[in-house]
Design a protein around this nucleic acid. Sequence first.
DNA 1: TATTATTTTTAGATTTGTCTAAATTTTTAC
DNA 2: GTAAAAATTTAGACAAATCTAAAAATAATA
Lengths: 219, 219
Amino acid sequence: MKLSLTEENYLKAIFHLSQQGHQAVSTNAIADAMETKPASVSDMLRKLSNKKLINYKKYQGVKINTEGQEAAIRVIRKHRLWEVFLVDKLKFNWDEVHEVAEQLEHIRSPLLIKRLDEFLGQPKFDPHGDPIPDDSGTFPELQKFPLSELKPGEMASVVGLGETSSVFLKYLDKIHIKLGAKVKVIEIVEFDNSYEVSINNHSPIIISAQIAQNLMVNY
Amino acid sequence: MKLSLTEENYLKAIFHLSQQGHQAVSTNAIADAMETKPASVSDMLRKLSNKKLINYKKYQGVKINTEGQEAAIRVIRKHRLWEVFLVDKLKFNWDEVHEVAEQLEHIRSPLLIKRLDEFLGQPKFDPHGDPIPDDSGTFPELQKFPLSELKPGEMASVVGLGETSSVFLKYLDKIHIKLGAKVKVIEIVEFDNSYEVSINNHSPIIISAQIAQNLMVNY
DNA sequence: TATTATTTTTAGATTTGTCTAAATTTTTAC
DNA sequence: GTAAAAATTTAGACAAATCTAAAAATAATA
């Protein structure tokens, strides 16, 4: 399926928004991300839905489907490989690459991407630490470890859970921890090995050693 | 001035057609080069003329002006630098690069081109031997030498003249030699050092040693 | 030089992606 | 549980780039 540059950008935005809260993505959220008007988004959603890249019911938001996801991931792979090229080979700073990679990601040439990947040594993460999907769309495993291995003063992002029991998840909701949350360890309490942490820069709270062992983070 | 991808492609085509016979370029010639219809070309010529990138009088064809030429040369520079990248770094064959370079040449980022140029070692010619203009739009000097240095059997293209007197130019017209002509040396006459040559594969003619010394060629 | 033939331009439509303004649906709040 | 607020969609327009068909200008030729 041949997609226009604009269609690719919409799919990418919808994919990224789907990664956060994983219910249906709203029209307004997409309009914000794309810096366009909700009316334009509605038009495009109808179009992407006709092409069977998303599941769209009017007024109900969209969910990206497998085919749409594959297309989005192909664009993301290209974007991140180009970022590696710009930083590793052309000596760009990590904050200068985004705009250019936004353009380069739309170049159509499977051979180019294959060769670029080889030239760069098949990198697994881009300069911002974001994972680069392989040719078949599979993301590499993150370097993740339990929060309990952090030392006081260190900060990391929650990228996974050691267990997923209902009580555990409910507790995480209660203390406002979700995937992607930035956690900073303030202090480790000697008495019971509990952790004083700040979630997304909010006021410190205490979590038990058992919780700390079940929150997987990475830098 | 911000140009659309299509405008850039038209300017490039007009620039290239101007290089050949250097009178005004016809609408049909552009339509052929762009693989589009003459009607579409007319529309675009009006547009480029409004932007003052070409001099266009209805039914009289177009001449590219300085500003249009600069824009075209910037695109050509990018195209040829990317071709060097593809061949030197990504191991493309010289016949695989054109289509991809056609896409890459439209990426907008002065820093990218500056860094790419440095990364490639500021090449002066692309994989097809075509000259790469520098940052200010100046083409490198061709490796040129007088036709008189050719040996029998060798072929080369006329790329310049050792002198430009009116009588010399008139004589060249008479024997149908102009810039770009392919000249093959058949034989060098020992007696007076005159050259038996074939111009663009036509039947052989004789030119004097003095002419041969004033026709600059390269391979 | 008239009269074809060719080239070029215009007129009117189409597609893609966008917009504003108005209508509709869903959500929120009293 | 209805009324106001917010979110979303539709209707109609617009700009860019293209096309076909027809008109106009230039070139070729008898």
